[in-house]
């Protein structure tokens, strides 16, 4: 049933959020460390066991694929609720600090990709 897929997805997201928060507490910081990443790995681990006792029926999978198809609209809504006004009215220093950080990071991507290819 579709709800099984939705439940698996929600369960993974919640477990990831809890583990990420616990990891943050262990490190002594008030932040979620990798909660989404942990949830993704968990989902991959569960759903990639296609043989044997646990196989995902297509109808179950549709509970997951529906939300990945909703990804872009959700991101569009996310963009529409950003505090863009504060970003732009933060003045030249905020624009320079944020902007230069982005440019420097973009510039480093090809370098690190090449490093990865060689490794």
């Amino acid at each position: 049933m579709t709800i099984y897929g939705v439940a698996i997805l929600a369960g993974c997201t919640l477990i990831g959020a809890i583990l990420g928060k616990l990891l943050g507490v262990l490190m002594g910081i008030n932040a979620n460390v990798g909660g989404v990443g942990i949830a993704m790995l968990l989902l991959l681990a569960i759903t990639s066991q296609s043989q044997g006792s646990f196989s995902l029926k297509p109808i179950t999978a549709s509970g997951i694929t529906f939300f990945s198809a909703m990804y872009i609209p959700i991101v569009v809504a996310m963009a529409a609720k950003q505090d863009v006004y504060a970003a732009i009215s933060g003045g030249w220093m905020a624009l320079a600090a944020g902007g230069c950080a982005v440019l420097a990071s973009f510039a480093l991507i090809p370098l690190l990709t090449r490093l990865q290819m060689r490794a």
Binding site: T13, L41, L43, L44, A61, F67, A80, K81
Partner: peptide, 27 residues
């Protein structure tokens, strides 16, 4: 009238949708 955009684009649904994209990713 558009307060719902805040729910749709909030952290909960955003993370939920991001996690769902992992389905079918290449391990």
């Amino acid at each position: 009238i558009l307060a719902g955009v805040g729910i749709m684009g909030g952290a909960m649904l955003r993370d939920f949708a991001i996690v769902s994209t992992a389905f079918g990713a290449d391990l």
